[in-house]
Amino acid sequence: MSDAILTLDNVTKVFGRADKPVYAARAVSFALHPGRTLALVGESGSGKTTAARLIMREYTPDEGQLLFRGVPLGKGDARALRNYRSSVQMVFQDPFASLNPTHTIRYHLERPLKLHQKGLTSAQRQAAIVELLERVKLDPKLIMPKFPHELSGGQRQRISIARALAVNPQVIVADEPTSMLDVSVRQGILNLLNDMKAELKLALLYITHDIATARYVADDIMVMYAGQIVEWGAVNKVLDDPQHPYTRLLLSAVPDPDRRFDDVRFADELGRVEEIRTLSARPQPETAQAGENHFYRPFPAV
């Protein structure tokens, strides 16, 4: 595997009072590699978005550190932060809220270019906007003068991706980028992310609760619960041979047309929901290996 571009090394983030801490991230470690997609799956409140915010440096870790190209990230001044953000970009969940309704699409794409590529002339910026829109398969002439409300959800999400690509990033963090879109347009966005990753050698962190789409776009996968990564590895290995009870619970709950509800196999797992949740929420510091590129945290003893 190629060298990691971004690494989280034992990162912990705690919220709440000292006597009643809430671990949003507990000793989280993972690495993003150019040209690879890592999926982060888990239920709401499991700490997925906290991981994204740590990467975007909206949160500072309480313990552990982030490394960019092997160099630990310190506090840094505004300029260092801006440089970092031109390498690490984010695509948000809600394409209706993440674009400014009072500005045209041209403005949305021109701003990051002005901020991060100061040398460009107006004509060069114009050419760059056209290229970006073509890259996300939108008609530049048609789209540039429009306002966000004139576009569909799928088109808006393409704009969000184009905006992220405007600064030539090396890492893209996509937090539930398709969960608010219809199935029919969802696929287009996933294919676009896949193509971008391959063509531009991007390192992609794909955050989702939809495991089927994670399998579709990702090379590797991590399952998160209560701030801990409980299982991780190659996507097919983890999904075909899940080791951690929480991974199995999550998989048994995923809607699957091949399995009717009356099937007893998952009723077993689902009957233990509370038990699995309680046990999974405890600290699980041990690591076990299930196979090549497949790891999990052995369940804590009762």
Partner: peptide
């Protein structure tokens, strides 16, 4: 038919799927 074809699957072979519309 197109709706089904556009849905990523949890098991089995993985092929590139095209959007419905």
């Amino acid at each position: 038919q197109r709706l089904w074809a556009s849905m990523p699957k949890l098991h089995g072979e993985q092929t590139r799927r095209e959007p419905v519309l």
